[in-house]
Design a binder for these strands. Structure first.
Length: 308
DNA sequence: TAAGATAAGAGGGACAT
DNA sequence: ATGTCAGTCTTATCTTA
């Protein structure tokens, strides 16, 4: 008896590096090179039957017809379409009960299709999150958090009409804020292809629609962050914290950028303690402009009646 | 060179229409 | 739903000490 071993042409060497350490991923229809990481999806499609038959009977019973399945379609091309012609194969009008049945089936068909579109959206978003977190060196735990936020946004229909990458970036930024992972909006935006203002808009949308309460950053907590970067002595830091506490009591801190306030308070403290730091140095590490430092500095001077 | 001043523009929140 | 307004922050440029 002749054996019916499949004759399948397969690549055995990586086209990039020549290694033969290849792994097949049948679900995705790809071949991955273990040594260089190159993924190829060429020549993987197995056009022969996926079964083996050893007798004539087996061959006949296992043989089928139909188009080859396709990996590029989300359902691998296996969907059935229920059309709207309420007639049977002979063109006869269907009885009312069957018509209602078909109506129900069509409804569910559409619903499952929506489902798969959500899946595809998620897959794309997760890929984007992967890319962003990779670029920004963000721990996976924060990424998980971002993914949860994204799913919530998707469930609430916030993604419709907006770009997936914008919402993904905004979710990631929100996750960073929530976990106190120090990444600025600017950094997140520049890692993604979305403009900063769009990420900011989506971020606010997330906070509003998902009722996320984000703790407002306390300028006092920013002081040490900024101070450590420009090596300002602890004593001067304490002066700055005192200044901020005083300003807070007089209610002149709300609505201001906490980093700007911290920077200005530090600058004042430096002047008072005769620590030589320029506005520029402090503004730079606080990620605000000199002008902002000056404006806050002016405000602090007024509210505290300082003469410098 | 550091600090201050000024102007123009962006973007969003509050509020009225 | 849309427009206006006050306030914030940024960028850029010029002046002052």
């Amino acid at each position: 008896m002749t054996s019916h071993i499949k004759k399948v042409w397969k690549i055995t060497k990586c086209p990039e590096c020549g290694s033969d350490d290849l792994v097949e991923d049948h679900d995705r229809g790809e071949i991955i090179c273990q040594s260089c990481g190159i993924v190829t999806n060429e020549n993987v499609m197995d056009r022969g039957p996926e079964w083996r038959a050893f007798t004539k009977e087996e061959r006949e019973s296992r043989g089928r017809v139909g188009i080859p399945i396709s990996y590029s379609m989300h359902d691998k091309g296996l969907s059935t379409v229920i059309d709207r012609i309420n007639r049977d194969a002979y063109g006869k009008q269907l009885p009312i009960s069957t018509r209602l049945e078909m109506l129900r089936l069509r409804k569910w068909q559409i619903r499952t299709r929506v489902h798969s579109s959500i899946d595809r959206n998620l897959a794309q978003a997760m890929a984007e999150l992967d890319r962003l977190t990779d670029n920004l060196h963000i721990p996976s735990q924060v990424k998980e958090r971002a993914a949860i936020i994204y799913r919530k946004a998707l469930d609430n229909g916030l993604v419709r009409g907006r770009s997936i990458s914008a919402i993904a970036a905004a979710s990631l930024y929100a996750a960073c804020r929530a976990t106190e992972t120090p990444r600025t909006l600017k950094e997140v935006a520049s890692a993604s292809s979305v403009k900063k203002k769009d990420v900011a808009r989506c971020y606010r949308l997330l906070l509003r629609e998902l009722d996320i309460i984000m703790p407002v950053e306390d300028p006092i907590r920013c002081v040490s962050k900024v101070a450590s970067k420009v090596k300002i002595p602890v004593k001067t830091q304490r002066t700055a914290i005192g200044i901020l506490g005083e300003a807070k009591q007089r209610g002149t801190v709300s609505g201001k950028d906490p980093m700007g306030l911290a920077a200005a308070a530090l600058y004042v403290a430096c002047v008072l303690n005769e620590v030589k730091r320029t506005q520029k140095e402090i503004a730079e590490v606080a990620n605000v402009t000199e002008v902002t430092v000056r404006n806050r500095y002016k405000g602090l001077k007024e509210t505290l009646k300082l003469d410098i």
